[in-house]
């Protein structure tokens, strides 16, 4: 196995809870130093996959390796932010983080200072002595985030790190995640917020109904799922090209009006040369902007999940 290169490796991993197959024969690799997004709708099996990676639950089948071994033996090198947020409500913030730091193998000397630095970094000044229950939900989430990265792990696994955060706090966290990645740490995070995944990830893996339905570099995924279409933002003049004139261009299958009424979308025939069509469109009508239509991760997500039969699944008694 290429253990030196891979931070996480799953081969044919499956997990069943009663009648529900939460994860089906999942293959997943995460290279060291990469930032991978694990995407999927609610109940897709993301959290189950992550819990198996963390050795919190055992796979029924398949092989699994984390940092070249068992996650149980690598706890000090892994940081984990679970989907379900939880703190000791009556414990003080500083005391809680020092406790987690000690469990993660950090020496007692200088630990309080380290915690204070992290609280400063995440913009939670002055809460060191506050009880956890006195903090807002977003603040508690940030405390828990610190708990997952305090020991500066090699691998950081974040389950829905941005859910429930306001845009300001989400941005603070986003910046820290980027910084940690630039420091060379491997980050695997699950989300169903596509915008953040698109902004952050080197690579995305999409799972639905426990199955992997997409795996690739973000740019390549967007490229491969880009529609064969051209977007034209029209000049507002009295001589605008009508959809009929644009539709007559050779290689154009049809013309649609986008959500923005100034924008027309020219769907291209499979054999059409996009450059030629763009040149002809420019001749046909004045425009402010003309470009190849781009796919968003959101489009890719919706299309693939819908094609894969949606995401509804029967509930089962499963780990939290």
């Amino acid at each position: 196995m290429s253990g030196s290169r891979l931070a996480v490796e799953l081969r044919g991993v499956g997990k069943r809870f009663g009648a529900v197959e939460a994860v089906k024969s999942l293959d997943l690799t995460v290279s060291r130093g990469s930032l991978v997004g694990l995407l999927g709708p609610n109940g897709a099996g993301k959290s189950t996959a992550i819990r198996m990676i963390m050795s919190l639950i055992r796979p029924d089948e398949g092989e699994l390796s984390v940092l070249g071994g068992d996650a149980l033996d690598m706890k000090d090198r892994i940081g984990y932010l679970p989907e379900e947020r939880g703190l000791y409500r009556r414990m003080r913030v500083g005391e809680f983080l020092v406790y987690i730091g000690r469990l993660k193998g950090l020496p007692a000397a200088g630990l309080s200072e380290r915690v204070a630095r992290w609280l400063e970094r995440i913009e939670l000044r002055g809460v060191f002595k506050s009880r956890c229950q006195e903090l807002s939900k977003g603040m508690q989430q940030k405390v828990q985030f610190i708990a997952s990265v305090l020991h500066e792990p090699d691998l950081i696994v974040l389950d829905e790190p941005f859910s429930g955060l306001d845009p300001v706090n989400a941005r603070v966290l986003l910046k820290i995640v980027k910084d940690l990645h630039s420091e060379g740490r491997t980050i695997l995070f699950s989300t169903h917020q596509m915008a953040q995944a698109e902004q952050l990830c080197d690579r995305v893996v999409l799972i639905n109904r426990g199955e992997k339905i997409l795996d690739g570099a973000t740019s390549a995924v967007l490229e491969s799922h880009a529609p064969r279409a051209i977007e034209i933002e029209m000049e507002i003049t009295g001589d605008n090209a009508t959809p009929e004139r644009l539709a007559q261009i050779q290689g154009v299958r049809g013309v649609r009006v986008a959500e923005d009424p100034r924008v027309r979308i020219l769907d291209l025939a499979d054999t059409a040369d996009a450059r030629k069509v763009m040149a002809l469109a420019l001749e046909a009508t004045p425009c402010r902007r003309i470009e190849m239509a781009r796919a968003t991760l959101d489009d890719v997500f919706v299309r693939l999940v819908t094609d894969h039969g949606g995401h509804a699944r029967a509930p089962a008694r499963v780990p939290a």
């Binding site: 963390m54 984990y80 679970p82 703190l87 939290a320």
Partner: peptide
């Protein structure tokens, strides 16, 4: 019930 268990289990077996 406070869900802190998963945080603990990520740090200890």
């Amino acid at each position: 019930s406070s869900k802190v268990i998963e945080v603990l289990l990520s740090a200890a077996s």
